[in-house]
Design a protein around this nucleic acid. Structure first.
Lengths: 336, 336
DNA sequence: TAAACTCACGCAAACGATTAAGTAAACCTG
DNA sequence: CAGGTTTACTTAATCGTTTGCGTGAGTTTA
């Protein structure tokens, strides 16, 4: 490997001069600089990030803690999109992305925080389903720059999807179509779930609609099967709902299939709505009415905030940043 | 940050002893080792990967070049699953994963190879749509350990999905149901496309079925819209096909919607088949008949091969490793 | 023209780890 | 008990950069 030493020798200058020239310090003459840069090309020199990081304590590397509950990993549409745009925005700012790996998989059993320290991460983005994980908490309590997706932790920057507003808009729309018997199948316990669920309760109360306990069911995110089971249970009620709101679009698809299997028509016989607005939602028959989350913006915002926190900590406010989505009016919710 | 120097001082030994103790060299007494390890915990010492990499020339970091044509990024089911299992298998072996970023995004304009060298990547996995990209070629021609997904390059290890066998099985199944008027909408030019397309031609020839040029259409991967357009074109033919095979499941979904929009029934009026076997395929109505690729195994195999190549280059054969998938018999292909 | 600057670069230490080679003490062995 | 081994360390060099400080030559100022 050709190092600074080699170009220093080739140019007849010191290593220090080479370093300064490449970092554009102003105590090196323009002639020397260009001569050095010419030689860099000629000899095919490439800097060494390890050496640089060792000396400067900056790796220009961001850790990503990415783990969801359903085991779908990177194929999880919602998280993947956030990650994708986070990655793009980070790279645009000169940062690389490295995954933080699960301590259970590691022989050295390093925790997320230890891993971050080991790799000299400048900061970490956390996108996980389980914020109760002790290793995640350790990370949140550490002194590392951190941004959390869809979770609020004291003193930390958060980027949040608009669950309250989203749920409100979605319910308002459904209500405007004449529905009052609205069931809601929610997902695993989390901040997101809590927000949506309490919004559901509040909305129903504000509209003066009595809430039937039977209409509020615990399901799972991204689980079409359970959604099907619950849908059948709802449809078997003496007084079934006229509209079912699912935990997410995946669940909604499971619900739609269950409904179709019973020979019912959507939205004639029953209406359904999803959440998230995955690409597939528009491909369904009928098109799914859902609340689209601006996952791309979330990733961008997360990267910007994190990098800001790293580069100018004094001037970076610790904020909860809510990213608005948009109601997608499909044709799965009908008029009553 | 607490370094080896600190524990050396605390234990009254030299830094070398600390290093050896932690790396379990056998010229350090057990007492000293355990004393050092105790102190490591007490002081909260964590190794520094940069320093280690600088000295050893091994980063235990793998680069991932991940770029597909459709712009769907990490939400691309097929690639994402490969990446996900690649990542898991790598982590299980003590390697971290870092994305190789696009030179166009970087201020320093580093190419993939330069980026890999800069970060001291021990090896690189390439999962891209466009193997003609000059930067990808540069990487393939370099001396870095590399494994390519779905592409064969002279002297490089490849992990390939079973496109020939898959296409054969799929067509054989369709043929066994009585179809001979089989149309094929293929995707963008690539090795995968070439393999599938030539298998289609060969199959038709072997079965003695005349191939109508009108039945072979160029489409796109993951593009439901174009698939719909092409489907309509096919259905408008004087003699339309009885079965359409799409480039992938996404395209098949677009096709199915177009068919439904015309009021036709699948598979009564026309049959369709996809490729890849995404999760969604089983959620469709009717269930999509497709060829499922074992993406998980592909990722695992890619990681194993790459790490082998890194760790014991002499004993690692340069091979093309084809991973078999499986025919998923949905109900979108009917009997004629 | 001596003092004061400026310019352009070199010196050397430092970052945190690894490792070949050296060494003092303890232990055998014939 | 002299000489050879083994044990358990230490010394010191090194990986490739960065950076504060030093310095000599040339330039300006009083």
């Amino acid at each position: 490997m050709v190092s600074m030493k080699d170009i220093a020798a080739a140019c007849g200058v010191s290593v220090a001069t080479v370093s300064k020239a490449l970092n554009n310090h102003d105590d090196i003459s323009e002639e020397t600089k260009s001569e050095i840069k010419r030689m860099v090309k000629e000899l095919g020199y490439h800097p060494n990030s390890s050496a640089r990081a060792l000396k400067t304590n900056r790796s220009y590397n961001l850790g990503v803690l990415y783990k969801e509950a359903s085991g779908s990993g990177l194929t999880h549409d919602y998280f993947s999109k956030v990650l994708e745009s986070f990655r793009n925005e980070s790279e645009r700012n000169g940062y690389d992305i490295t995954f933080l790996s699960n301590s259970k998989l590691r022989k050295d059993r390093m925790s997320y925080l230890e891993h971050s320290i080991y790799r000299g991460m400048d900061g970490v983005m956390i996108a996980v389903a389980d914020y109760k994980d002790s290793e995640v908490i350790e990370l949140l309590q550490s002194s590392l720059p951190v941004v959390a997706i869809d979770y609020v932790y004291n003193g930390r920057i958060s980027v949040l999807s608009s669950n309250v507003k989203g749920m409100e808009e979605l319910l308002e729309y459904i209500y405007s179509q004449g529905h009052t018997r609205i069931a809601y199948m929610y997902g695993e316990e989390s901040m997101v779930t809590t927000n949506r669920l309490s919004t559901y309760y509040r909305f129903m109360r504000e509209k003066g609609i009595g809430i039937s306990d039977e209409y509020v069911c615990e399901g799972k995110y991204r689980d079409s099967h359970i959604a099907g089971v619950i849908t059948n249970r709802l449809l078997d009620l003496k007084q079934p709902p006229t509209c079912i709101v699912y935990a997410d679009d995946f669940a909604a698809i499971g619900g739609m299939n269950a409904i179709k299997d019973r020979g019912l028509k959507i939205p004639k016989d029953i209406s359904v709505a999803g959440f998230d607005g995955i690409t597939m939602a528009g491909q369904l028959e009928p098109k799914l009415t859902t609340y689209w989350q601006n996952t791309e913006q979330m990733g961008i915002e997360a990267a910007k905030k994190l990098i800001n926190l790293i580069e100018i900590p004094k001037e970076t406010a610790i904020v909860q940043c809510v990213i608005s989505g948009k109601l997608v009016e499909g044709s799965s919710v009908g008029k009553i």
